[in-house]
Write a protein that binds this DNA or RNA. Sequence first.
DNA 1: CTTCAGATGCTCT
DNA 2: GAGCATCTGAAGA
Length: 209
Amino acid sequence: MEILPKEFYDRDTRTVARELLGCILVRVLDGGARLAVRITETEAYIGRMDKACHAYQYKRTPRTETLFAAPGISYIYLIYGMYHCLNFITERAGEPCGVLIRGAVPVQNRDIIAENRFGCKASELSAYQRRHFLDGPGKLCKGLALTRKENGLDLTKPPLYVCRGTSPRPEEVQVGKRIGVDYAQEAADFPWRFWFAAETPEEDEDDLF
DNA sequence: CTTCAGATGCTCT
DNA sequence: GAGCATCTGAAGA
């Protein structure tokens, strides 16, 4: 399946965020196992004008340095002392922009993802756990074993890459305010969150990624 | 279903 | 020292 090229990310961040819906995020573990999820929820962050962005007005600190990197790089940071958030860098190098990956559903190696996330096999999950498998940025990183060690990776090759997937139909896509940025004044109301409803499959899909 | 408190450590002032 | 792009379990309705 086609890996999204660098050029995919070198566009308006909101466009990238919307088009990432349905795409397949692949995480290759050190042991070689390939975990794959379908992206269902994203948010855009645009530093030059967005008070919710870590690099608002091009603010450069050790943490935000990755946001200034080339499009198609991972940006992963620690939040609330115990969770991680995964972003993809967008727009040309020097523009501190990215897309936060807020949610996904597992499509491959569900047992390993379930082990990372809940400490048990996928078949042992409750209906509630299955419904909330990876529906949050911290949950996604936990399930895919992503930490700051994976910050700054090239998203066009292993161990972390993204493939074109089946996009939701336009009428399935929901748009709204971003989550958890109430402090950001006018930017708190920017409709830069995109998502669609996707059922968690009962079984792994075919090994195409 | 809902609200709510607590966890926990890094980042920047 | 304050705040944070979050999550969980417990308790209530």
